[in-house]
Simulated assay, not measured.
Amino acid sequence: MGLGLLPLGLALGVLITQARLPWWFASLSTAVVYAGSFEFLLVSLVLAAAPLATVALTAFLVNVRHVFYALSFPLERVHGRLARAYSTFALTDEAYALAAGPQARSWSGARLLWLQVFMQLYWVGGATTGALLGSVVPDSVTGLGFALTALFTVLALDAVRERRDDLPTPVLALLSALAARLLCPGQLLPVAFTLFTAALLARHLATSRRTSRA
């Protein structure tokens, strides 16, 4: 996973340099914000001089999914206030994908914490390196913002393979994304998340009623 984050960080760093932002913006963003997909969006928001309210709302809509991650992330294994605070801060998609899998059930709190530390180091190091080397990458190189989408696609495919008996969930996710693309292409992400959450709740209620009747 770290080797996957490294080229993503490089892509973010190069994107920041191509946007004519200072190289240290990459280090500061990845160290303090550390929000993956939102950091790619943050570049365009900074360039557009977007109001803080717009930045805050965008950050909330993009990262609200982390509220659901916290429901099953094994934070109780991490001991100490400082360690727990950092583990909460560093709860990314990639960290959740690894820690919520069946192979992580026996992992200690220290292993979970160091996993998150090293993942952020890969991210910060990759972005900083990309920003410093960004000047040698020609402006004709495009599509760097798609790097994070590619990683999410790989994580989704891995999740489907691990849970072959739960095919309705990825089908609901795909249908939610397609519906959001047709209905609100300009607000695809928040609309897709809303539709997907509503579909999951409806399925849960339907399943609970069938179970109670049985």
Results as ranks from 00 to 15, higher is better:
L151S: 07
S72E: 12
A127W: 07
Y96W: 09
P74W: 08
L178Q: 13
L75S: 08
L144N: 02
L71E: 01
P170Y: 05
A90T: 02
S176P: 11
T129E: 00
Y96I: 00
W123C: 05
S72V: 15
A150C: 09
W114P: 12
S108H: 01
Y69F: 15
H66R: 01
A90P: 03
Q103Y: 00
A177T: 15
T169Q: 09
A173Q: 04
P102G: 06
V160E: 03
V141P: 13
V64Q: 02
L98H: 08
L121R: 04
D158M: 13
G134I: 04
G126R: 07
A147G: 14
P102L: 03
Q103P: 10
P138C: 05
L175Q: 00
G101K: 01
L115E: 03
S135Q: 14
A83V: 06
L133A: 12
N63G: 04
G109S: 11
D165M: 07
S140F: 06
A159I: 00
V64F: 09
G126T: 11
L172R: 11
Q120H: 14
H66K: 03
L115H: 05
L132C: 13
T153G: 15
A156F: 15
Q103F: 02
L167K: 09
P51Y: 01
S135T: 15
M119S: 15
L133E: 02
D139L: 14
A100C: 10
L167A: 14
L133I: 12
L144W: 06
A99I: 07
A110F: 00
E162H: 15
A127E: 04
A150V: 10
P74C: 11
A83L: 01
Y122K: 00
A83S: 10
